[in-house]
Simulated scan of single mutants.
Amino acid sequence: MPAYTATESWSAQIAVQEGDIIQNGGSSLVRVCAADPASDDDAIDLTSKKAVKISAAGNVRIRCVSGNARVKIVRGL
């Protein structure tokens, strides 16, 4: 399962597949955005220890609101 460090800047694009689950493994708020360019207004907030399931293949970018966070992607079936 791929893991990424989210910083306060938007990450490079991360390819995701339908059914993948993005998990916030830390205690900091993480934003996940599928828009290009990424924007806080288009992002969803992923709070501590929460996850979101991807409904369509594409690319996302992540960022941590404050400090750093660890994000994992669990590949769907």
Rank of each mutant, 00 (worst) to 15 (best):
M1H: 11
M1R: 08
P2I: 07
A3M: 11
A3L: 15
Y4T: 09
Y4D: 10
Y4P: 07
T5D: 11
A6I: 07
A6D: 01
A6V: 03
T7L: 05
T7I: 11
T7E: 06
T7H: 05
T7S: 13
E8N: 08
W10D: 05
W10A: 04
W10G: 02
W10H: 04
S11M: 09
A12L: 10
A12T: 14
Q13E: 10
I14K: 02
I14H: 05
I14Q: 04
I14G: 03
A15R: 14
A15C: 04
A15N: 10
V16F: 06
V16S: 05
V16I: 12
V16N: 01
Q17W: 08
Q17K: 13
E18I: 15
E18Q: 14
G19I: 08
I21G: 01
I21D: 05
I22Q: 01
I22F: 01
Q23W: 10
Q23E: 10
N24Y: 03
G25M: 15
G25D: 11
G25I: 06
G25F: 13
G26C: 08
G26W: 09
S27P: 06
L29G: 02
L29E: 09
V30D: 02
V32W: 00
V32S: 01
V32N: 04
V32G: 02
V32H: 00
C33R: 00
C33E: 00
A34E: 08
A34K: 06
A34H: 07
A34R: 09
A34S: 14
A35E: 13
A35V: 09
D36K: 13
D36Y: 10
P37C: 10
P37L: 06
S39L: 07
D40V: 00
D40H: 03
D40C: 03
D41S: 15
A43L: 03
I44Y: 00
I44N: 00
D45L: 01
L46Q: 01
L46E: 00
T47A: 12
T47M: 04
T47E: 12
S48Q: 15
S48L: 08
K49C: 08
K49I: 05
K50E: 08
A51L: 10
A51Y: 11
A51H: 06
V52Q: 02
V52C: 00
V52E: 01
K53Y: 05
K53E: 10
I54T: 11
I54H: 03
I54Y: 11
I54E: 04
I54W: 07
I54L: 12
S55L: 13
A56M: 13
A56N: 09
A56V: 15
A56T: 14
A57S: 13
A57I: 02
G58K: 05
G58L: 04
V60W: 06
V60L: 07
V60F: 09
V60T: 14
R61Q: 15
R61M: 03
I62N: 05
R63Q: 08
C64W: 05
S66E: 14
S66R: 14
S66A: 13
N68F: 15
N68H: 15
A69P: 12
A69I: 06
A69T: 06
R70T: 14
K72L: 14
K72R: 11
I73P: 07
V74T: 15
R75H: 10
G76T: 11
L77H: 09
L77C: 04
